[in-house]
Design a binder for these strands. Structure first.
Lengths: 342, 342
DNA sequence: AATTTTACCGAAAACGTTTTCGAAATGATC
DNA sequence: GATCATTTCGAAAACGTTTTCGGTAAAATT
């Protein structure tokens, strides 16, 4: 029941372990005859190389790490799917960890992965990560690192993102185009880059179109497990504080859906009284009532692109070639639905 | 930049590798003085044991494999979260693979994980898996295996499930209780055990309450990526073929949501004309209109339970103790919402 | 003072593979 | 028949750790 080793094959054929190893990997200096013999016996014995030994010897694990803030999340689970699919094609396995939006956990997990000697790491930052030493360490240890979605601009590595600022601009401009004059914004937490960029896109769209920016119209949502509740809460607040608002651009779909739910209960008509644009294009957004206009964020593509880039860097590293960090920006598009249909 | 090894520490302190190793693991036969010395140097050099070498030597990887039909899925992503969380507590990492509901892929992935020498495997079956040799192989190779949700009754291993039959019975009985007389069922594919069990629960609830079972009221949904469309399609079909139906028990929420969407468009009132009960309690079900009565399926708990059981078996295996396969059945409950509120 | 016990350390084997390098055997060339 | 090139193989080192088994020296016991 013990797994079969090279040595056993060698003994049965009365040849050396070296020759068996070479035969299996088609080295030129072993005769066709012995190659055939070895391969046949190996397959009948169902020989599988011991990954630990191979890893130890070759110093690569054919395994990558993935750190993600939350797993139960339409966008992120799509990214996971993309990464796994692409990795499988290249014979890589993926170890997944969830940072729970916590910097401390994220740091520990990076260490875990480094100790495990993964060949590279893909990650999206936790919301409260402000210090990036743990990331710089990864790169200094010659371990390829690719960040996606929630990135740290300051860290020198490859990144796969969308143009959040432009997407937010488009979303806000769409509200302006359909006639909104007083546009609020439900933004994400203060730290994450994409939350900042979406806010900046919103503000620029306003000022570019002659609408003065009013800070009191910006509400902050600590997006996490209870985004939905945050949406409801802020919608309620908005109805009290700014009855004149006729459009909202919301940082993420789940919050938007919470807001819609609150407005529905309050009898506020969407889009007649308030038009709403979300962000991410969760499946849910297409089936609620009214369906939600939103920005499509290509999770699957991002995952695939992230792995492809990581793979490139792993290869370059092996060949001691210089590696070129890429900033890959994927296209987004506005999906028009009932929540802005005039 | 090369990672520091035991040998380097040993050289710097002029002691043997053996002593260093023992010192770090608090063996009793090394003096407190040298222990302190070694530990201090190890921490200043930031020594991290080479996982490959440890694995090779100890024959365990502190890694488990997880094969799951689909990742972008409310229930399954919750299971993943549960497994990862629990595994992290015990110092285990999780390699995740997606079978895409394909038996062929599933088989390959099992092999991959076995070659990688994971310490155990947790999995939920692909829809079209009928042959279980690949699973028996796992067990025969003394590798702990825990199945959850979509299991093979015939395979002798631990299982974490819900009582699908009872849950379906409850769901159907609820429809009867609110006065439905003609109750249809949208079932899942023919093979999966839980799809069969839910059907059986449905049928038993009918006959137990004096309603004769009518096979023409059972529609099959090939649940996969396009469950939503399947729901719409079958709802349309049902409206044509059986105008007298006043209740439906549907195999899974996403299909139910598709059906609701179709009924809404057709002007069929829910629950007045047709009452609907789904299955799984996706978050989405609570926010659509009308909100969906459903069976809560505890994904997070299942994940945690599955890992706990696997961990037990791994420990027993290490100590050469006998392992006892468990069948863990988690509680479900009916969540009443608008789709059955009379 | 002889013996036993205790405390501490290290040599060496083992895990299973990969790869370098040299050796032996065969064939080709002059 | 001597030399050289080619083909085929294997010994050995290496990857970094863990663990068994002795061994030495000091302390404790007679």
């Amino acid at each position: 029941m013990k797994p079969v080793t090279l040595r056993e094959i060698a003994n049965k054929l009365n040849i050396s372990v070296t020759t068996v190893s070479k035969a299996l990997k088609d080295y030129p200096d072993v005769s066709p005859k012995t190659k055939a013999l070895v391969k046949e016996l190996a397959s009948t014995l169902n020989y599988k190389p011991n990954a630990f030994a191979v890893n130890l010897r070759t110093r690569e694990s054919k395994t990558i790490g993935l750190i993600i803030p939350v797993i139960v999340h339409h966008f992120f689970s799509n990214v996971i799917k993309g990464i796994i699919a692409q990795a499988e094609k290249k014979g890589y396995l993926v170890i997944i960890l969830q940072s729970n939006e916590s910097y401390e956990l994220e740091k520990k997990q990076i260490e875990l992965l480094m100790n495990q000697r993964v060949d590279g790491i893909i990650m999206s930052l936790a919301n409260d990560t402000v210090d990036f030493k743990h990331l710089v360490d990864v790169i200094n240890n010659d371990k390829p690192l690719v960040m996606f979605d929630k990135i740290a601009k300051i860290v020198n590595c490859s990144k796969v993102i969308i143009d959040d600022r432009k997407a937010a601009y488009d979303a806000t401009k769409h509200l302006i185009d359909i006639g909104c004059k007083r546009i609020a914004h439900f933004r994400g937490s203060l730290l994450p880059q994409n939350s900042i960029d979406r806010f900046l896109g919103y503000r620029k769209a306003l000022t570019d179109h002659g609408i003065s920016y009013d800070p009191s119209l910006v509400y902050i949502c600590e997006c996490d497990e209870k985004s939905f509740e945050e949406g409801k809460k802020n919608a309620l607040l908005l109805m009290k504080e700014h009855k004149d608002v006729d459009g909202i651009f919301i940082n993420t779909d789940l919050v938007a859906i919470g807001a819609i739910s609150e407005f529905n209960e309050a009898g506020v008509k969407i889009p007649e009284d308030i038009a709403i644009v979300g962000f991410s294009n969760w499946f849910m957004s297409s089936i609620i009532s009214p369906s939600l206009t939103t920005i499509d964020q290509p999770g699957l593509k991002m995952g695939k692109a992230a792995f492809k880039q990581l793979y490139k860097e792993i290869q370059s590293m092996k060949k001691n070639e210089p590696i070129y960090y890429q900033q890959i920006v994927l296209k987004t598009k506005l999906i028009e639905r009932e929540s802005t249909r005039v």
